[in-house]
Amino acid sequence: MAAPSIDALGQFGLTTGLGQLGRALHFTNSNEAMLAAAVVIVGIFALGLQARALVPGRMQSLVELLYEFVRNMCVDTIGEEGLRFFPLVFTIFAFILIGNLIGLFPYFFAFTSHIAVTLALALFVFVFSTGVGFYTHGFRFFKFFVPSGVPGWLLPLLVPIEIISYLSRPVSLSVRLFANMTAGHVMWEVFAGFMLLLTASLGVVGAFASVVPLGLNVALAALELLVAGLQAYVFAILTCLYLHDAVHMH
């Protein structure tokens, strides 16, 4: 038997999903997970909104909590106008949250661990918020890059800084989510690989020793649960912040 080795990045490889049909359409396992996330979200809402009770049951509570959490986030960060963007923010939050959570399960694919996906989401938010800025303020939106109360001779230095700071938004937004998800899954794989290596090289002693990486993985699972929720929250609140900047220009 060949000695087991740690292939930490293999888990992120794309394969085709949905059998023959998927192969023909280039439908990947990442797309499959996205579809699953969408189905889970719609399913939770369909289930939770069936009762429509004044005193909500469990599912309805879950739905109402989610709704109110995002709604408060919108209103607190953007202001009353924020409700116009509530559907967008909620969609992004729910998609990333469920995507992160689905990715934690064995045999499921964490599509948020691909920078292609997170960058697409971040670029959409970036272009959309810039569009909102120009739509609300017209060409006065360019003033966003000119800090107020600064002597004129400093502007040639400060305007490029502001522009670069603005352009770095989609990068930081996408890299944060992608890096957190990837790092968590890589650590899981590495510790799981340790267990195989220990048993293969030390036999019975190694099998007992592999309790240590197993324990670490259990602790990591809790951490990853936190990170999955937190990253979805951070992505959504930054979307709100950028929309706030576009609507109010500070």
Binding site: S172, V175, R176, N180, Q231, V234
Partner: peptide, 12 residues
């Protein structure tokens, strides 16, 4: 969660 990435992103 934000601060580290913010700095690197501007540099990139």
């Amino acid at each position: 969660m934000r601060l580290g990435v913010e700095m690197v992103a501007a540099m990139v």
